[in-house]
């Protein structure tokens, strides 16, 4: 069957998409990423992690050229990250993500007897 569906874009919200600046810090426990996302409430942030990707998105109350700002950024992550234990917190316009190392990625000390 031929698909004649035409997408109606008139209702689609328009955003100005910006890539938020980020600091990525290597810690013994894993990686910490801090994104600058001014004007974004914690309830307006969506974070997806899986299939080797980490995607963050946040709708801001700020505007550019009369349109609301959407912060959007994605990273490739290795399988050394324990996706189930990723934690996120937002404060003063900064979103902080903690990506802990997976069990198998933590180096173990082996004592030589």
């Amino acid at each position: 069957m031929k698909n004649n569906t035409v997408k109606d874009k008139s209702d689609a919200p328009e955003f100005v998409t910006l890539r938020p600046p980020a600091d990525v810090e290597d810690t013994p426990a894993g990686v910490e990423i801090a994104f600058e996302m001014p004007g974004v409430k914690s309830s307006d942030i969506s974070i997806e992690a899986g299939s080797g990707m980490l995607k963050i998105e946040g709708k801001s109350t700020l505007q550019r050229k009369g349109m609301p700002v959407l912060f959007k950024r994605s990273f490739y992550i290795s399988d050394a990250v324990d996706v189930e234990k990723i934690k996120a917190s937002a404060k003063d316009g900064v979103l902080t993500l903690s990506l802990p190392k997976a069990e198998h990625a933590i180096p173990r000390k082996i004592t030589v007897s």
Binding site: T17, R19, V24, D26, G30, V31, G52, K72, R73, S74, F75, Y76, I77, S78, A80, V81, L99, K101, A105
Partner: peptide, 15 residues
Amino acid sequence: MNLLAKRENELPVEL
């Protein structure tokens, strides 16, 4: 170990 292993999606999405 680099947990953000492969590469980062540096380019703006739309562009």
